[in-house]
């Protein structure tokens, strides 16, 4: 049995996100009006050898804290299943 976890990592509010800014500019160049702030993060999908969703979530959160996100500049969210 494995459980899938999805870790979403986003730049924290107040941290410059030049990638998001560049995407916003490109959308404006394409003629999309009314696009406000654009923030770009990343999604990391994990296949975990766990059967207990609560345990899987705890493990994925520790992975996020220790490696997947840099909590100085990024926040993270873990979803299971």
């Amino acid at each position: 049995m494995t459980i899938r976890a999805r870790v979403t990592v986003m730049p924290k509010p107040g941290v410059l996100d030049p990638q998001g800014k560049a995407i916003g500019h490109a959308l404006a160049n394409l003629g999309f009006a009314g696009v406000g702030e654009v923030r770009a993060g990343k999604v990391i999908e994990l296949e975990l050898a766990e059967t207990d969703p609560a345990k899987a979530k705890a493990v994925a959160e520790e992975m996020a804290r220790r490696l997947l996100a840099n909590t100085v500049i990024e926040s993270y969210r873990v979803e299971i299943g």
Binding site: V15, L16, P18, Q19, K21, A22, N70, V72, I73
Partner: peptide
């Protein structure tokens, strides 16, 4: 060194990209 938390802070993408 920053990622290893041996020094504080982080290095972001250059503001100019």
């Amino acid at each position: 060194l920053c990622e290893a938390q041996m020094l504080p802070g982080a290095l972001l993408r250059n503001a100019s990209l």
